[in-house]
């Protein structure tokens, strides 16, 4: 695999708080995310997953080390790294379609093209009928899908997702997991997906990372290719594979022994 388009976290450490009483949220972290990977990052809550994602998104500057995309250091957020937030950050002053088109609007894409694109992505996430509703009229799951459509429509190279399905009921979560896998298989995007669910991480990821708490440290990093790009295996089939169960068990015990 080529390394030119990869995302590299290089010796990053993160502290919060004032100098004399600062807390270390992330211990020295090195991580290379290759193009096309679906990286799932699991770990107990408060271990620093969101911190790592926000560093990569460019929302905070690392206290130490640097993050590079395609070899050049990142300074702040950019359209190459789309973010799906834990709680949807849609704009209530726009309707659903305008939210989805926003990235394209910022890039200067023509109105007709924007409409066409938003229609496509709204269909992909099953929100066609809600295109002209206000975002606060959507349920939590629909808002999350709208957020995903918004990020997909702006066509970033990396999609960073912070427990996007955490607040959803089991049924909706499962459906969205399958939809996301489908999208990944079709588009070949590079995804960093944060979750506190071991099952979700092993099921979705082409690579699974586990982080230990206080300060956050990646202590488990293995491939988990139960769903390759271009393939489509039924979810139940994957979940009954012995290799799936075995990896899930190892991830679980590595989280349990991390604290």
């Amino acid at each position: 695999m080529s390394r030119d388009k990869s995302l590299v976290v290089d010796g990053v450490r993160q502290f919060f708080g004032p100098k004399n009483s600062r807390v270390q949220a992330l211990s020295r972290t090195d991580l290379v995310i290759e193009p096309g990977q679906f990286v799932c990052l699991a770990g107990p809550s408060g271990c620093g997953k969101t911190t790592l994602l926000r560093l990569i998104a460019g929302f905070i500057k690392p206290s130490e080390g640097q993050i590079t995309v395609s070899g050049s250091e990142i300074f702040g957020p950019g359209p190459d790294r789309g973010v799906v937030f834990q709680s949807p950050t849609l704009y209530p002053w726009m309707d659903v379609a305008s939210n989805v088109e926003l990235g394209l609007k910022f890039q200067g894409v023509s109105k007709d093209q924007r409409r066409a694109d938003s229609e496509r992505y709204l269909q992909m996430v099953g929100l066609t009928d809600f295109a002209h509703r206000r975002t606060y009229e959507l349920s939590g799951g629909m808002q999350q899908r709208c957020q995903i459509a918004r990020v997909l429509a702006s066509d970033p190279e990396f999609i960073l997702m912070d427990e996007p399905f955490g607040a959803l009921d089991a049924l909706t979560r499962e459906r969205l997991q399958n939809e996301l896998l489908d999208i990944w298989r079709k588009t070949g995007k590079t995804i960093l997906f944060i979750t506190h669910s071991v099952d979700e991480a092993v099921f979705l990821g082409s690579r699974v990372l586990v982080m230990s708490p206080r300060p956050g440290k990646i202590l488990f990093d293995e491939p988990a290719i139960f769903s390759k790009p271009g393939e489509s295996i039924a979810a139940e089939e994957i979940r009954s594979l012995p290799a799936f169960l075995e990896l899930r068990e190892r991830v679980r015990s590595s989280i349990q022994h991390s604290h």
Binding site: F59, P77, G78, G82, V83, F85, T89, L102, S154
Partner: peptide
């Protein structure tokens, strides 16, 4: 909400 817009370019 600011971050989201910045990440959309």
């Amino acid at each position: 909400q600011i971050h989201a817009a910045q990440s959309l370019g």
